[in-house]
Simulated scan of single mutants.
Amino acid sequence: MRRALVLGTASCALLAPALAVAQTWPDKPLRIMVGASPGGGTDILARMLADKFAPSLKQSVVVENRPGASNTIAADMTAHAVPDGTTLLLATNTGQAVAPHLLKLKYDPLKDLQPIGLVAVMPNVLVVPTTSPYRTLKELTAAMAAKPGTFKYASSGIGSTQHVGGEAFNLSTGLKSIHIPYKGSSQAHMDILSGQVEMMFDSTSSAMSQIKAGKFRPLAIAWDKRSPELPDVATLAEQGIKGADVQTWYGLYVTAGTPRPVVERLGAELARVLKLPDVQERIKGLGGEINPLSLEQFAAMNRAEYERYGKLVRDANIKAE
């Protein structure tokens, strides 16, 4: 009885600081780190979350863009931040599942970043500028076959899902196109629109605005189903190309070591925001889906995606150029 009492008292003593932090948190402004430049899909979603978090948390929430190194600069800063729950990271599978297999990092994405929740999943879409002579995927691949190694595809950086999608396409079709990396989708878009690069396997979250504006022509969806926002655009598989499906998912993370009550509070806040009708409509408008996951489910998905993309990187022989 006495031993149980002592253990119980000790447990309460250990829990007290964490509970105290949770009750007073957040006591200073928050920041959401983004590993891409302003205007891209990650930035759009991060600013949406910041706008929704601020009134509820009663603190200002700012978005800090740190593009480069396949989204890992922002992830590195989050991994090495004070674990007080005020430095968040809106990451994609680029930084969490692909880049670790290509770059030498100063942090462990599975150990140094605490998963909070899945924000959205967006299919990648193969686009060309509307000034392009290629109106269908069949026309594009025929031209690529006739001039091997001369077509270029853009990406938001080495190890991005756009990069992986392009190399998976090369592998699945037996064609060869040249990878041109940029520091974010918005920069890549400028060279596509100017005709310096022929195509891009972009996420719908960053490409949709250009598609709706009539500047990009979508040729194929890299998903196992058509996008509700682009119902007339056939999937790669429907057009005879299998094994090249690559999606972009967006997840929220915090520095590992953040007190569990704060982690749970962040998870609850994200779940609340993702239920808001205007948020659901915004993500749908970007061509994405919301698939709510618990903290544990998202952590399991994070690890599984790390392993899956590691295999894809090896199979497609993707290198950090």
Rank of each mutant, 00 (worst) to 15 (best):
Q196R: 08
I158F: 15
L118G: 06
Q162N: 13
L118T: 07
L90H: 08
V164C: 05
T141A: 12
N124G: 04
E167I: 14
L88A: 10
H101P: 02
N93C: 08
K147C: 10
R135P: 02
T94W: 02
T130Y: 12
G159Y: 02
S155A: 12
K111G: 08
M122K: 03
S156P: 12
V119R: 12
T131Y: 03
P109R: 14
I116N: 03
G95V: 03
D112V: 11
S160G: 11
V121R: 02
N170A: 12
T131N: 04
Q96D: 11
L171N: 08
V197I: 15
F169V: 04
T94I: 02
S156Y: 07
L102S: 04
Q187S: 11
G166H: 03
K176T: 13
A154K: 00
A154P: 00
L126N: 01
L137I: 09
V197F: 01
T92H: 10
M190S: 07
D112T: 09
Y134I: 04
V119N: 14
G195F: 01
S186Q: 15
G149F: 15
G174E: 09
K106G: 09
G184C: 06
M190G: 04
P100G: 03
S185L: 06
L175E: 15
L105C: 13
K176C: 15
T92K: 03
T161L: 00
H179T: 10
G195P: 00
L118N: 12
G149Y: 15
F151W: 15
Q96A: 07
G184F: 06
I158R: 14
F169I: 05
Y182V: 05
S194D: 06
I116T: 07
V119M: 12
P109K: 14
I180W: 13
V127D: 00
L137S: 02
H163T: 04
K183I: 10
I158N: 09
L89M: 09
Q187Y: 07
V128H: 05
A97P: 01
A143Q: 08
Q96K: 06
N124V: 00
L110P: 03
E139G: 11
A142W: 10
T173M: 14
A154M: 02
L140F: 08
T130R: 10
G184L: 05
R135M: 09
A154D: 01
S172H: 12
G195W: 01
A145V: 11
V164R: 01
K111P: 04
K152E: 13
P148T: 15
P123W: 00
I178R: 08
A99Q: 10
A91K: 04
G95L: 00
G117F: 05
T87F: 06
Q114N: 03
P181H: 11
Q187R: 07
V119E: 13
K176D: 10
S132C: 13
V121N: 03
A168Y: 04
T150K: 15
G117V: 07
V125D: 00
Q187D: 10
I116C: 05
G149W: 15
T161C: 01
P133H: 14
L118F: 07
A188M: 06
I192L: 10
S177Y: 06
G117N: 10
K138S: 11
D108V: 07
P129H: 02
T136F: 06
G157E: 05
K138E: 13
L88E: 04
K176I: 10
T92P: 03
D108R: 04
N93L: 05
T161A: 01
A168R: 06
L105H: 11
L90D: 05
G95F: 00
L105P: 14
H101Q: 08
I158V: 14
V125K: 00
A146F: 12
L118A: 06
